[in-house]
Amino acid sequence: MAKKISLPLNEETLKGLEAGDDVLLNGVIYVGRDAAHKRLIETLEHGEPLPFDIKGQTIYFMGPTPPRPGRPIGSAGPTTSGRMDSYSPRLIAEGLKGMIGKGMRSEAVKEAMTKYHAVYFGAIGGAGALAARSIKKSEVVAYEELGAEAIRRLEVADFSVTVVNDIYGGDLYDEGKAKYRRE
């Protein structure tokens, strides 16, 4: 049974999540991928405020296809999270609580998740048409000039994800692989 969760993530919710849990996210998530992350970190390095308050928020690593008329968004599945590994620890230290993507995270990101209490959710790579069904609203909130890489604010309803890394150091990729490995 999938757990329904309201965003933003609070400490109590984070404590209840374990690697392998199926979760349905409800509320607001922000979208950013490579170029947007680079800008966010540069902004912090210049001592300037981020274009949105990151405390408690969840970032979805994603760059959608253009929407057809009448639709909030096009295809909207996750991109490979590893490319954000060099940026994520800094954002987690700033208060980021959730990340959505696909693929493995670095040790530095996992350490930041256990230290500051943040989680990493996996979405199904390639299933962008299915993911789009749970996105009710989408607006660009920063770096519009980056096109598909701009920062967006999404409103999602029952957005389906799986907990990959929890605040306790659990890792679904390691656990799942160990369970089904054969010699």
Binding site: G63, T65, S75, A76, G77, I124, L130
Partner: peptide, 20 residues
């Protein structure tokens, strides 16, 4: 879910994957 995604996309409105 991947198979469900394939069916949704085949309706011709939303691409299979955002990475085209």
């Amino acid at each position: 879910r991947i198979l469900e995604n394939i069916e949704i996309s085949a309706q011709g409105e939303v691409p299979l994957c955002q990475d085209t």
